[in-house]
Design a protein around this nucleic acid. Structure first.
Length: 702
DNA sequence: AGCGGCGTAAACATCA
DNA sequence: CTGATGTTTACGCCGC
C-alpha cells in the first residue's frame, strides 16, 4: 500500500512538475508578450501580470494534479489537499496583488504623472508562491499522508460524494478563474491606457475595476468558506482529521518532508486511530515498525500509540494529563473503539455501560501484551487488505463498465504491479479453479460460520470446477480462494496435506511431481519463491510418507494417495486445551487453520513488516476479520514471549475426529499446519518457479 | 526430558 | 555432464 501510494505521489509529483514548468513557460511567454507589446512596461504592470500568471499557474497545477491519475482514491484526497493549497496560494496572491494595485492607484492618484517607484518585490512575488506550489505535490506532509491513509477506508459512496463535491468546487473555481482573468485583462488594458494615453487617471474605470475586484474578493471569500464547509463536512464524516491548532487550509506544513520514521509513525497512527492529535504531540518519536504497538489508555480518540520510549508494561506515558482532561462526552461518541455501549476492539465486544468503564476495560483488557500487539498488527493488515480490495474492486467496476458500455474498445493496459497482474490472471480460464466450486461444497461452506466459511475454502483447496452453468460460488468464496493465491502468506497446512490435496484435485487422482509443483505455485503465492526449498520438501514428503504411493505410468511415474495410510498417519487425540475445544465446538471446526494462517501471516510479515511483497495483494476482509476473531481466542494460548512469532502447530490433528463427525460429506479436510518457523537461512532470492511462469499450467486437462 | 510430527537442508542415487 | 526425480539422513523446532 505504501508502495502504491508512494508511486502515486511520485507520478502526481511529476505531473505537477510538468504543470509547473509549463506554467513557468507560460509566465515567461506572457512576459515577453507584455514587453513586446510596446515600450518597456512599468513595474506595476509586470508585478500584477506576474501575480496573475502565478495564480493561473497555481490553478493549472491543481487542474493538472486533478487529472493526473483519476483512479486512485489516494489521489482524490491528495488532489483535494493540493487543490485547496493551491487555492490558498492563489488567494494570497490575489490579496497581495490587490494591495499592490491599491497602492498603485493611490500613488497614481496622489502622484499623478510621476513614474512609479521601483520595487524589488518582484522577485519574491515570483519565486515564493511558485516554489510553494511546486513543493506541494512533491512533498507530502504528515498531515496529508494521514488524511490520505484515513481516506482509504472510504466506502465507494463516500468516495463518490467526495468526488462530486470536488468537482463542484473545481467548477466554481474555474468560473472564478475566468472571471478573474477577464478582470485582469481589463485592468491591464486600463493600466496600459494610462501609461500610453497620459497621466490623467480615469476614475470611473478605476472605480469599476475596484468594484469588480471587491466583488471577486467576496466571491473568493465565499469560495473559501465553501471549501471550509467542505472540509468540515469531510471532517464530520470522519474522512478528514484536522488538527485544532492547524489552519483549516493546510498551507503551513508544505515544507515538511516525510522522513521514513514519520511515515512509519503515521502508518501506525492511522491504522490504529482516527486522529492526528497524537501525531502532533508525539511527532518527536521516531520509531521502528518492529516495535510493538502500545494500547493507549488515553481517553482521546487515539487508541494506539507507537512510542518506543514508552514503557512496555502497557501503562502508557505519552498522553498528557491535559489530554486526559478532555471531555469524555466529546470523545465517547467518537472513540473508534467504543460504540453502542460495546467495546469495539476487534473481537472483544465487551459491554461497557459508560465511557469510563470502557476506558477501564480498555486499560485492563487491551493493555500492551502479545495479544494486543498481534491484534494491532492484524488490524493493520485488515486495513491494508481492505484498501487493496477497494482498489481492486474499483478497477473491476471500471472494467465492467468499460466492457458493458464500450464493448468495442479494448481494456486499458495500465501497468500493474506483479501482484495485481496475478490477480487479473485469475480470471483466465486456466485459473478458474477457485472461481467455481461444486455446489455441495458451496452449500456446506455457507452453513459454516463466517470464520469457518473462510477457512473451509482456504484450507481445503477446491476440487475441479464444475461446468460453467454450475458456477454458483459466491464472490467471497472466490476471494477467499484468492487469498493464498495472491498473498505471500504461508498456507497453514502441511506439505503432506497439500500434496494430498493436489493429487486428489486432479481428475485421475494422480499427479507427476512436476504437476504437484505446478499446483503449489498456482495455488499459493508463497510457493512462488524459494522453489528449491519447498520442492525439496515436497519430494521429501512424497518419499517419507507411506500415504504417497509412486505408480509407474505410461507417461512416467505419478504419485497417488493412499487414503487409509493418510488417515492412519496422524494421531487423533483431542486433549488439553479447553478453549481449543470450545473453538472447535463453536466454530464448526476449521478455525485452527485460520489461527495458523494468521500466525503465518504474522510470521511472514514480522521481519519485513508490511512489505508490499507480502501484503501487496488483495484479500478478503472477512478472512482478515476472521483471522482477528480467531486470534482473540487463539492468542490466549500462545506463550507470552512476544519475540516468538513462529506459530507452532495449531492442533489440527486433534480436531480431526470432531471434524469428521460434523462433516462426514467431506473426507478431505485439513491436517496439521505447516510449521511456520521462519528459519534464518531462508534465502532472500525470488526464485520464481519456471514452470509456473512459462507454461499455462493446467493439470486438470487430461 | 522424551517423543513424535514437521520443516529444512543436504547427501546420494538413478535416469533421461 | 546436467538437471529432474527420488531416497535417506540429520537436525532443529514445537507441542504434548
Amino acid at each position: 500500500m505504501m508502495q502504491e501510494s508512494g508511486t502515486e505521489t511520485k507520478s502526481n509529483g511529476s505531473a505537477i512538475q510538468n504543470g509547473a514548468s509549463g506554467g513557468n513557460h507560460l509566465l515567461e511567454c506572457s512576459l515577453r508578450e507584455v514587453r513586446s507589446n510596446g515600450e518597456t512596461p512599468s513595474v506595476e504592470i509586470g508585478a500584477a501580470d506576474l501575480a496573475h500568471l502565478q495564480q493561473q499557474q497555481v490553478l493549472i497545477l491543481a487542474v493538472c494534479y486533478a487529472r493526473s491519475s483519476p483512479n486512485s482514491a489516494c489521489y482524490k484526497l491528495n488532489f483535494q489537499i493540493s487543490f485547496l493549497q493551491a487555492l490558498q496560494v492563489a488567494r494570497q496572491l490575489l490579496l497581495q496583488q490587490q494591495q499592490q494595485q491599491q497602492q498603485q492607484q493611490q500613488q497614481q492618484q496622489q502622484v499623478s504623472g510621476l513614474k512609479s517607484p521601483k520595487r524589488n518585490d518582484k522577485q519574491p512575488a515570483l519565486q515564493v508562491p511558485v516554489s510553494v506550489a511546486m513543493m506541494t505535490p512533491q512533498v507530502i506532509t504528515p498531515q496529508q499522508m494521514q488524511q490520505i491513509l484515513q481516506q482509504q477506508v472510504l466506502t465507494p459512496q463516500q468516495l463518490q460524494v467526495l468526488l462530486q463535491q470536488q468537482q463542484a468546487l473545481m467548477l466554481q473555481q474555474q468560473q472564478l478563474q475566468e472571471f478573474y482573468k477577464k478582470q485582469q485583462e481589463q485592468l491591464q488594458l486600463q493600466l496600459l491606457q494610462q501609461q500610453h494615453a497620459g497621466k490623467q487617471p480615469k476614475e470611473p474605470q478605476q472605480q469599476q475595476v475596484a468594484t469588480q475586484q471587491l466583488a471577486f474578493q467576496q466571491q473568493l471569500l465565499q469560495m473559501q468558506q465553501l471549501q471550509q464547509q467542505h472540509l468540515l463536512s469531510l471532517q464530520r464524516q470522519g474522512l478528514l482529521t484536522i488538527q485544532p491548532g492547524q489552519p483549516t487550509l493546510p498551507l503551513q506544513p508544505l515544507a515538511q518532508g516525510m522522513i521514513p520514521a514519520e511515515l512509519q509513525q503515521l502508518w501506525k497512527e492511522v491504522t490504529s486511530s482516527h486522529t492526528a492529535e497524537e501525531a502532533a504531540s508525539n511527532n518527536h518519536s521516531s520509531l521502528d515498525l518492529s516495535t510493538t504497538c502500545v494500547s493507549s489508555s488515553a481517553p482521546s480518540k487515539t487508541s494506539l500509540i507507537i512510542n518506543p520510549h514508552a514503557s512496555t508494561n502497557g501503562q502508557l506515558s505519552v498522553h498528557t494529563p491535559k489530554r486526559e482532561s478532555l471531555s469524555h462526552e466529546e470523545h465517547s461518541h467518537s472513540h473508534p473503539l467504543y460504540g453502542h455501549g460495546v467495546c469495539k476492539w476487534p473481537g472483544c465486544e465487551a459491554v461497557c455501560e459508560d465511557f469510563q468503564s470502557f476506558l477501564k476495560h480498555l486499560n485492563s483488557e487491551h493493555a500492551l501484551d502479545d495479544r494486543s500487539t498481534a491484534q494491532c498488527r492484524v488490524q493493520m493488515q485488515v486495513v491494508q487488505q481492505l484498501e487493496l480490495q477497494l482498489a481492486k474492486d474499483k478497477e473491476r467496476l471500471q472494467a465492467m463498465m468499460t466492457h458493458l458500455h464500450v464493448k468495442s474498445t479494448e481494456p486499458k493496459a495500465t501497468p500493474q504491479p506483479v501482484s495485481t497482474e496475478l490477480c487479473r490472471n485469475q480470471t483466465k480460464p486456466h485459473n478458474s479453479l477457485f472461481s467455481c466450486f461444486p455446489p455441495e461444497r458451496v452449500m456446506r461452506s455457507v452453513v459454516c460460520s463466517k470464520v469457518c466459511r473462510c477457512l473451509v475454502l482456504v484450507g481445503r483447496l477446491r476440487t475441479r470446477p464444475s461446468s460453467a452453468a454450475g458456477c454458483v460460488s459466491s464472490p467471497d468464496i472466490a476471494q477467499n480462494q484468492e487469498f493464498y493465491k495472491n498473498a505471500e502468506v504461508r498456507p497453514p497446512f502441511t506439505y503432506a496435506s497439500l500434496i494430498r490435496q493436489a493429487i486428489l484435485e486432479s481428475p485421475e487422482k494422480q499427479l507427476t511431481l512436476n504437476e504437484i509443483y505446478n499446483w503449489f505455485t498456482r495455488m499459493f503465492a508463497y510457493f512462488r519463491r524459494n522453489a528449491a526449498t519447498w520442492k525439496n520438501a515436497v519430494r521429501h514428503n512424497l518419499s517419507l510418507h507411506k500415504c504417497f504411493v509412486r505408480v509407474e505410468n505410461v507417461k512416467g511415474a505419478v504419485w497417488t494417495v493412499d487414503e487409509l495410510e493418510f488417515q492412519k498417519r496422524r494421531p487423533q487425540k483431542i486433549s488439553g486445551n479447553p478453549s481449543l475445544i470450545k473453538n472447535i465446538q463453536t466454530s464448526h471446526t476449521y478455525c485452527t487453520p485460520l489461527n495458523a494462517a494468521l500466525q503465518a501471516s504474522m510470521a511472514e510479515n514480522s521481519i519485513p513488516l508490511y512489505t508490499t511483497a507480502s501484503m501487496g495483494n488483495p484479500t478478503l476482509g472477512n478472512l482478515a476479520s476472521a483471522m482477528r476473531e480467531e486470534l482473540n481466542g487463539a492468542m490466549e494460548h500462545t506463550n507470552s514471549n512476544g519475540s516468538d512469532s513462529s506459530p507452532g502447530r495449531s492442533p489440527m490433528q486433534a480436531m480431526h475426529p470432531v471434524h469428521v463427525k460434523e462433516e462426514p460429506l467431506d473426507p478431505d479436510e485439513n491436517e496439521g499446519p505447516l510449521s511456520l518457523v521462519t528459519t534464518a537461512n531462508h534465502s532472500p532470492d525470488f526464485d520464481h518457479d519456471r514452470d509456473y511462469e512459462d507454461e499455462p499450467v493446467n493439470e486438470d486437462i487430461e
